[in-house]
Design a protein around this nucleic acid. Structure first.
Lengths: 122, 122
DNA sequence: ATATGTGCAAAGTGTTTGCACTCGC
DNA sequence: GCGAGTGCAAACACTTTGCACATAT
């Protein structure tokens, strides 16, 4: 694991706001100013392949998530922030009777709306 | 409603395969060879704003869906095809206790895996 | 020495936009 | 004639890639 990969990994692991690649770059630069966006992307993809972080595909570019496993997300359409949603029972989605023909590997659940911060700003 | 908007609208309404913008363009060109990709995008977006079609955001570009309302999708990671999933009870997602602070407008549920066609090809 | 990884710039994708022109009313 | 809509090309945002150089075993 190169220095750069470690910096990228730390940036994601220490973020709870599902950062975009640009946000990861900014956080890496605080620690290693010479790091490059291409390197960030390469390492994010490597970390995903290694299964130690996850990608969340939402509006405004992909986000990177330290939390593994299936869990729902909420994205605010105003500020584009993404948060985990706790306590959602996704088991109901398994009983789909769909696996008979197709192999289901992944379940993406994303709720969209307006977060309480943006609601209060009117 | 311009001729072009009508052609775009028909292309989506008569497709059951959740076409991409490129696929919509191809189908429009069969009927109106002079039509342009920018026009397709503009009209797709207008139709979405009018609420007569829906956008489905998945890998490999957005898809356009004649079926309105919340319903789950399955996307094959091999051939990228997208199909509707029937008979999934998404009501379980409403009981999220999340709406207290945030306004939820939309629920996206996408299953990913390998479709039976691609499974059989090995 | 060798393989792996980096930084940079360039290319690639999918989508949107500025502008002059055209069409239907 | 006027406003909405078109076609084209250029711009855009995000991501990947080719290549020469650096780095660590």
């Amino acid at each position: 694991m190169s220095k750069q990969r470690n910096v990228v990994y730390s940036a994601v692991i220490n973020s709870s706001d599902h950062p975009t690649a640009d946000m990861v770059l900014a956080r890496c630069k605080e620690v290693m100013p010479s790091i490059n966006l291409a390197t960030v992307y390469r390492n994010l993809n490597a970390l995903i392949k290694d299964g130690v972080i996850q990608k969340v595909m939402v509006d405004g570019g992909d986000r990177f998530d330290k939390t593994l496993g299936t869990h729902a997300h909420f994205q605010c359409k105003v500020c584009n922030s993404v948060v985990d949603i706790e306590g959602v029972d996704l088991s109901c989605l398994k009983g789909i009777g769909f696996e008979t023909n197709n192999r289901v590997d992944e379940v993406d659940v994303t709720l969209k709306g307006v977060c309480h911060n943006c609601l209060n700003l009117n």
